[in-house]
Amino acid sequence: MNENFGTLFTHLFGGGEARLTLVESDDPLEAGLEILCQPPGKKLSVLSLLSGGEQTLTALALIFAVFLANPAPICVLDEVDAPLDDANVTRFCDLLDEMARRTDTRFLIITHHAVTMARMDRLYGVTMGEQGVSQLVSVDLRRAEQMVA
């Protein structure tokens, strides 16, 4: 998993390095986990010293490293792109595409970010056409593109 984490971190940041180390015990079941990372152009440090966006990308690299080691049928990510700027949201979406290709995991992304929504296969939303009456709406973006073309 450590190798996957380092590879995904480097992919997300376009360079740098990251690794996981066990701390405070020789017994892996009782040890803590320290995340050491070095985004391009920065010094090696612990996760808590990174910016919010860098912390988010690092956490996503760790989550996806777990999925590469032990894939699950579904992964729900809720507003993980909220602290990211548009460039980093694009990196996140690129990694999400790669993860969908490499695993059989289906990703359910809850987001309000337009860049993320534009990259999804299907969107679900709730509208209120009239007061007090909610309606679920589903849009297959691939079909919608074909209809427009």
Rank of each mutant, 00 (worst) to 15 (best):
113 H>F: 00
91 R>C: 10
137 V>D: 06
137 V>C: 04
72 A>G: 01
101 R>Y: 07
5 F>W: 08
140 D>G: 01
138 S>R: 04
7 T>P: 00
147 M>K: 12
97 D>F: 04
107 F>R: 01
92 F>A: 14
29 L>A: 07
8 L>R: 08
50 L>H: 13
65 A>D: 00
132 G>Y: 04
133 V>R: 00
51 S>L: 12
12 L>R: 06
143 R>S: 14
122 R>F: 01
11 H>G: 05
40 P>V: 11
148 V>D: 06
42 K>F: 11
46 V>N: 04
37 C>Y: 02
70 N>Q: 07
128 M>N: 07
78 D>H: 09
12 L>N: 02
72 A>I: 07
112 H>Y: 08
98 E>G: 13
82 A>Q: 14
101 R>M: 10
22 L>Q: 13
31 A>T: 06
143 R>I: 12
124 Y>D: 01
93 C>K: 07
128 M>I: 11
124 Y>M: 07
128 M>C: 09
143 R>A: 15
94 D>R: 13
80 V>L: 14
29 L>I: 01
92 F>K: 10
83 P>L: 05
142 R>M: 05
71 P>W: 02
129 G>Q: 09
136 L>Y: 04
67 F>C: 08
51 S>E: 12
27 D>L: 02
7 T>M: 07
92 F>W: 11
118 A>F: 09
80 V>I: 15
66 V>A: 12
136 L>E: 06
25 S>T: 01
96 L>R: 09
72 A>E: 11
65 A>N: 02
29 L>Q: 11
102 R>V: 00
18 A>R: 05
80 V>N: 07
13 F>Y: 06
39 P>E: 07
90 T>C: 07
83 P>Y: 07
137 V>I: 14
16 G>E: 01
46 V>L: 09
10 T>G: 06
116 T>N: 08
143 R>F: 06
94 D>C: 10
52 G>N: 03
31 A>S: 15
35 I>F: 09
106 R>K: 11
62 L>C: 05
87 A>Y: 10
20 L>C: 03
87 A>S: 13
94 D>P: 01
133 V>A: 02
5 F>A: 01
48 S>V: 02
58 T>F: 02
117 M>N: 06
88 N>A: 13
71 P>V: 00
1 M>W: 02
70 N>E: 10
91 R>V: 03
123 L>N: 04
111 T>V: 01
46 V>W: 00
100 A>Q: 15
57 L>G: 12
6 G>H: 11
89 V>R: 11
40 P>D: 05
36 L>D: 05
46 V>I: 03
33 L>E: 05
115 V>Y: 07
85 D>T: 05
96 L>M: 05
99 M>E: 13
5 F>E: 01
136 L>D: 01
53 G>P: 14
22 L>M: 07
16 G>N: 00
36 L>A: 03
85 D>N: 07
103 T>L: 06
12 L>G: 08
2 N>L: 09
32 G>R: 08
138 S>Q: 13
97 D>T: 15
95 L>K: 12
87 A>Q: 11
113 H>C: 02
103 T>P: 02
112 H>G: 05
91 R>M: 12
102 R>C: 04
11 H>R: 11
69 A>K: 10
132 G>H: 03
140 D>H: 10
129 G>W: 00
69 A>R: 00
28 P>A: 03
128 M>F: 04
94 D>N: 13
24 E>G: 05
132 G>K: 08
121 D>C: 04
139 V>H: 04
55 Q>A: 09
100 A>F: 10
74 I>W: 14
21 T>V: 04
18 A>C: 03
